[in-house]
Simulated scan of single mutants.
Amino acid sequence: MSIFKKIFGSSSESSSEVNENDFNSPHDSNSQFPVDEQFTHNFKKNGGKFLYCENMVELSEQFENILEENDWFESQALCVESKLFKLLEENKISYQNPTKPSFFLASCESLIADEGSIMFSSNQIKQNKPNELPDNIVLIASTSQIVANKSDGLREIKKRYTTNYPTNITTVNYFEKAIEENFLHYGSSAKSLYLLLLEDL
Rank of each mutant, 00 (worst) to 15 (best):
F4P: 09
K5H: 13
I7A: 03
I7P: 01
I7C: 04
F8S: 10
G9C: 09
S11A: 02
E13C: 08
S14R: 14
V18A: 15
N19F: 10
E20F: 06
N24T: 03
P26M: 10
H27N: 11
D28Q: 08
D28L: 12
Q32V: 07
V35F: 09
E37Y: 06
Q38A: 05
T40F: 01
F43V: 01
N46F: 02
G47E: 00
G48N: 04
G48L: 05
C53G: 02
V57M: 03
E58M: 07
S60W: 02
E69R: 15
E69T: 13
E69M: 01
D71V: 00
D71Y: 07
W72R: 08
F73K: 12
E74H: 10
Q76S: 15
A77P: 04
S82D: 13
K83W: 08
L84S: 06
F85V: 03
L87T: 10
E90M: 13
S94L: 11
Y95F: 15
N97T: 11
S102K: 15
F103C: 04
A106K: 08
A106D: 06
S110A: 15
A113G: 08
A113V: 03
D114H: 11
S117V: 10
I125D: 00
Q127Y: 05
Q127N: 12
N128A: 10
N128Q: 10
K129N: 10
N131V: 08
E132N: 10
L133R: 09
L139W: 05
S144A: 14
S144D: 15
I146N: 11
L154H: 06
E156N: 14
I157S: 07
K158R: 13
K158M: 11
T167E: 14
T167N: 14
N168Y: 06
T170P: 08
T170F: 05
V172G: 00
N173R: 15
F175G: 00
E181N: 02
N182H: 00
F183K: 09
S188E: 14
S189K: 02
S189R: 00
S189I: 04
L193W: 02
L195K: 00
L197Q: 06
D200I: 03
L201R: 07
